[in-house]
Simulated assay, not measured.
Amino acid sequence: MTEVLTREEYRAAVSKPKRGNKFGARRTVFDGITFDSKREAEVYRDLKLLERAGRISGFERQRKFELIVNGEIIGSAKIDFAFIDHDQDGRFRCVDVKGVVTREFKRTQKIIKAAYNIDVEVWK
């Protein structure tokens, strides 16, 4: 005797299981915001505390930068956090939280440095 499956049951049976993040990061929700990793959520929490204490200002999440080469926009990159650090004489800082620094990210860092003269810091 053959078994009859509904369309949903068949699709569930033959679908591939979802792969996790290739670097092992797990999405985390903090303050109603979904972060790509637990570490990114921790950095966000710490920076929000510094902002409340008045040590940083102009705090932004997911700051977008246009990647410009020879006057032409070739793409864009989102950097996790940007802020003005009052502990370092009002310096503008951009921070990206990474577990693994890839070759692609290093290239993005160089383009942002060339186009905007901003060093993107990597916090692990």
Rank of each mutant, 00 (worst) to 15 (best):
G75S: 13
E66Q: 09
E72S: 06
D80C: 10
N70T: 00
G24A: 04
W123F: 06
E40I: 01
P17Y: 02
T2R: 06
V29Q: 01
R19K: 12
R19P: 03
K78Q: 15
V4Q: 07
R93Y: 07
I84S: 09
E3L: 06
E9T: 00
K64E: 15
L67Q: 01
T102D: 10
E60A: 07
F35Y: 13
D31N: 14
E9I: 00
F65E: 02
R7M: 02
I118M: 10
R11T: 02
V97M: 08
K38T: 14
S76W: 12
F59W: 05
I79P: 07
K110T: 12
A82F: 04
R45F: 03
L5E: 02
D46N: 08
A25R: 11
D36Q: 03
E3W: 01
M1W: 00
G99L: 01
R93L: 13
K64T: 14
E42I: 03
R93N: 07
V120G: 05
D46P: 00
E60M: 07
E60L: 08
I79G: 05
L5T: 01
I74V: 15
N21D: 14
F81Q: 08
S15Q: 14
N117S: 13
R93S: 04
E66I: 02
V29G: 02
R26Y: 05
